[in-house]
Design a protein around this nucleic acid. Structure first.
Lengths: 398, 398
DNA sequence: CGTATTTTGTTTAGCGTCGGCACAAAGTCA
DNA sequence: TGACTTTGTGCCGACGCTAAACAAAATACG
């Protein structure tokens, strides 16, 4: 009927990730004619996904007719994103462009039954949907553990007191169905490890934008997680268990690890390791990450704290160098404790990585702190948006 | 003009990799109608790339009209593949389907000037082309070292006495141009690390067929190499230096390595390490790999040899388990010495990997020996075939 | 042994999607 | 103000596919 069907998804992704501010850019990025790009934009606008500002822009610079500007529709549909963490859960409605439209959280002890938490989170999301009146096109969930494919089971969710192997995806889908969230069918509901989702979010909307091979490393509470985005897609391995980087050996004389080895990244470079190295007694009141990050922020001048930070940076650098030798990414982003360590002394970590990775060439890879708030939450939303980005028509015409 | 243009490349790849023996299979694999599949097959036949056997097949089994069978054209065009190794070079003409049409080799000491060797190899390939009268559509080169992108420079070609950073791709292209090989322009000539190319070949035509995430590990002379094929494409990292797996720590108390650490896979699991562990003096007459493989084949019953093999398997298993935790492949293929070790005792290696990888689930990944002769050579040919597989028309209509 | 059934291959018609092109619109530059 | 540059849009035609009918070649079954 109309022009521009095949290119609909790629075009939406370009606007979504902020890489197509105008129809002219869309034309070149998609490699189609202006006519087709115009038709694609018109179709996306008709679908309510993007808006076009055709007012004469006060354009500075180049000559020629100024472009109309393309925006994600700020009042368009949203997806429901939920994140479970050690201290509770957080739920958000996220629009295209990774914009958080509304968010709420629930705190307190996480019950041992994941179904209860997920039902609470979904109920909170349902409330948000009712309050805002937004149309919901999907839902995504972030959990702080590995998620095994193809069934979406949480493996070893250590700091949640959940049973290992809990079928979180099925439970999440059930909770969504029970809540009767309009627009979300059984087929749409995605689940992922929180570091994976941080990587996805940072790649689309944050410090990882434009990277082809993006490596993320983060430590939130206990242990160290990794994630890899290749050509814009999350690489989670054949069964979802890739980038379990916590058991790289970074200190042959180090502390024993439950994996049977010793000196693993997991036990040498997480918040607890940092607090212990700094000679602080970890308190139970706030999260280990918060305690560690506050210590770096407030007492970095203290020699003991500084020494502990340097030690952890050296260990972390060894682990990252190993990953650089294996994955050869073109950008690295750090989250959680590692972000704090990087920001406190960017040069030390870069030097260690460059020194221990095999070729100066790949050792010179940029290492950046993550740049988004709630990046796992936004990443969970990306999972939910993916079907829309793949083909806007089939999802919207339900 | 005709039907079936967009699907031409995918269709050729299906026949090339042996996944489309008939038009009927082509129909379902491409997700098109029988009409289109027929047109595609006709076009590929007209281009001289495939042949169709429409004789009434003595088909056993299913009912209905028997399919005509599709074959790669055995008398069709070829690509030139060259491999440089410690003992000399080998050159082959390789047709579609990874079939080696003709091959020759040059032995002797590799001169310190790579341009000389490459010119010799290309000259040998030129002779083969003249003798066979085949049309040549491209050329690929395999070298036993990392190859840095985007310029194709060989880094640390330790056992070739070449300078590190030698621009082997440019030299190869120059040699091809000097030889005036018809059909090969400056734009077509590809270079890759030999383990990478082994992985590519095994994925397309060997033990890796059908795998989605394929990990290869091999040791040919000194050191250990790795390679990864993701979704049918070689993952060589942002600058071609991915899967440098030789410096994974597999023995904290092990021998020092030139990288500054100790107990690296490179020095713990290569042919030299095996010969030393078995108490044999490596001789200079044949390659270290040959000596090690012969020892395993002929004297595996000897307690010292057996103990050395077990030790290397344990070290190798530790390294592979680390890779499994990071990459989560769905199949692993071993080459060189590691193939011999695997074939001598398949269960020991599998047990070590399963034991040391984090989840039994990903620990249960199949580990297989490589199955092709000259797999690096065939892989180099795959590099050269790739443009044809991507779009048969642009390459053939020159 | 002949007919129905199944599966494959081919032909024809039709249509959807995109490129090419001409033209209009909206700015800058001299 | 007029020439130039760049962007947006409408129209037409071509290309590449699907759909549907038909033909061919085997098996299944009475």
């Amino acid at each position: 009927m109309e022009r521009g069907r095949g290119a609909l998804g790629p075009a939406l992704e370009l606007v979504h990730t902020g890489r197509a501010p105008t129809r002219a850019v869309l034309t070149s990025e998609l490699g189609v004619t202006r006519a087709t790009a115009g038709a694609v934009a018109a179709e996306l606008e008709a679908l309510g996904l993007i808006t076009v500002d055709s007012r004469p822009t006060a354009s500075a610079g180049s000559q020629g007719r100024p472009s109309h500007r393309l925006f994600v529709n700020e009042n368009g549909p949203v997806v429901l994103a939920a994140q479970i963490h050690a201290d509770g859960f957080r739920v958000a409605l996220v629009g295209l462009g990774g914009r958080i439209v509304a968010t709420t959280s629930g705190c307190g002890t996480i019950p041992a039954d994941p179904a209860v938490v997920l039902a609470e989170a979904v109920a909170a999301g349902s409330d948000l949907l009712r309050e805002t009146g937004r149309r919901c096109l999907g839902a995504g969930l972030a959990v702080p553990s590995a998620v095994a494919e193809p069934d979406g089971e949480a493996l070893n969710p250590l700091h949640l007191a959940w049973p290992s192997g809990a079928p979180v995806r099925a439970l999440f889908l059930q909770a969504l169905a029970d809540a009767g969230i309009p627009g979300v069918t059984d087929a749409i509901g995605f689940t992922g490890n929180d570091v994976n989702l941080m990587a996805l979010a940072e790649h689309r909307h944050g410090a990882g934008r434009g990277a082809r091979d993006l490596l993320c490393v983060a430590s939130g509470h206990r242990g160290v997680g990794g994630a890899l985005v290749l050509d814009g897609r999350l690489h989670s391995g054949s069964s979802g268990l890739a980038l379990e980087v916590g058991h790289l050996t970074v200190n042959p004389e180090g502390a024993p690890c439950h994996c049977g080895s010793r000196g693993c990244l997991d036990v040498e470079a997480d918040p607890l390791a940092f607090l212990v190295a700094a000679g602080r007694e970890p308190g139970p009141e706030v999260s280990l990450l918060r305690q560690a990050a506050d210590l770096i922020r407030d007492e970095y001048a203290d020699p003991g704290v500084r020494a502990a930070a340097d030690l952890l940076v050296d260990r972390l650098g060894l682990g990252i160098a190993g990953l650089v030798n294996i994955l050869n990414p073109d950008r690295i982003i750090l989250g959680g404790l590692h972000r704090s360590l990087l920001e406190a002394d960017p040069e030390r970590l870069r030097a260690v990585v460059a020194d221990r990775s095999l070729w100066g060439r790949s050792g010179g890879v940029p290492i950046l702190p993550c740049s988004l708030d709630y990046n796992s939450l936004v990443g969970a939303a990306e999972l939910a948006w993916q079907p829309v980005l793949d083909d806007p028509l089939v999802v919207l015409e339900r």
